[in-house]
């Protein structure tokens, strides 16, 4: 017999988690489209963001949420500086550009994880969130944990701003054009270096900030990155490679799958279940659950 109250609570938790995952997934998908690079460093950006929250917030005597503007600026700047390096290794006369990009970002991920381990050691750290404790009980539905709700609100807000930029501005249209065909975009007068830097910077900024919220929801741990890299892969494959709207659905599916698996099977089985879903999707619909992706076909 299914406990309806528990079921509803799991759905709430899953949807709230999905809110922040979508932010990571959209950025990751866009970086893949614009730079044609599978960014293995995505999970480590989440991890470094979480550690920035854990370190900077106590330094200023503030809550983790208040260091978000700093994290946004720092990650945007670092992302915009890293992008030309990625562009350099994936273009020109080098053979196997996709592999070069993969190796480069894998190295970057290893460097970030190793750096944090060296500086902070292997133990996890808390990101201060004392103002965001407790939950809001909604009669007939369940309890909305404050920290997860704020996290989801940030995720959805970030996503709305990002999507507005992509679909309603000149720069966003240029980024979408580059994501579809960067050779033709150059013929259309679009300065791809500039927009690639903006896109990668925005992706890094959103991902790092998501890391602060994830750190507040769970904690900051040097080993957490790999899981979020796997999550990002899950979302873009489920959405259909390069199909941004699909990432929103995929993020929600991810949050729900994580919540249900953790309760009904085991927290340790989450990745197992996610990869089982990916295998089935790739076998049945390589272009994603909506069939609109392009690059997995």
């Amino acid at each position: 017999m299914v406990d309806i109250g528990l079921f509803t609570q799991i759905v709430i938790n899953g949807l709230l988690l999905g809110g922040i995952y979508v932010t990571i997934g959209v950025g990751f998908s866009l970086a893949f489209g614009v730079l044609e690079v599978v960014d293995f460093a995505v999970g480590e950006y989440v991890m470094v963001g979480a550690f920035m929250g854990a370190v900077l917030a106590p330094l200023f005597g503030a809550e983790g949420v208040f260091v978000i503007p700093i994290v946004l600026v720092v990650f945007f700047a670092v992302g915009a500086l890293i992008q030309p390096l990625i562009h350099h290794v994936t273009t020109g006369d080098r053979p196997h550009p996709l592999l070069m990009g993969l190796v480069f970002t894998f190295g970057l991920a290893t460097f970030l994880r190793g750096g944090v381990l060296t500086i902070f050691g292997p133990n996890s750290q808390d990101v201060p969130s004392s103002l965001l404790t407790g939950g809001i009980a909604v009669p007939g539905l369940g309890t909305f944990p404050v920290v997860r709700t704020v996290t989801a609100v940030f995720g959805v807000s970030g996503l709305v701003v990002f999507m507005y930029y992509l679909y309603r501005t000149r720069g966003g249209m240029a980024i979408r054009a580059i994501a579809e065909d960067r050779t033709n975009a150059r013929l259309m007068g679009i300065n791809i270096n500039r927009y690639q830097s903006i896109a990668y910077g925005a992706y890094a900024a959103l991902t790092g900030s998501a890391g602060v919220f994830i750190g507040m929801t769970f904690n900051a741990s040097p080993g957490m990155g790999l899981q979020y890299t796997a999550f990002a892969f899950f979302m873009v494959v489920l959405a259909g490679m390069g199909y941004l709207p699909g990432v929103i659905i995929a993020g929600v599916v991810l949050g729900l799958t994580q919540s249900f698996t953790a309760v009904y099977i085991s927290g340790n089985a989450v990745l197992l279940v996610l990869f089982a879903i990916i295998y089935v999707v790739l076998l049945v619909s390589p272009a994603g659950i909506l069939g609109k992706g392009e690059w997995a076909t």
């Binding site: 000149r170 249209m173 240029a174 054009a177 975009a185 259309m188 679009i190 199909y243």
Partner: peptide, 12 residues
């Protein structure tokens, strides 16, 4: 993934 008009508007 863009309309014909958006293809044209993408030109800078």
């Amino acid at each position: 993934n863009m309309t014909v008009r958006q293809n044209m508007l993408a030109v800078q």
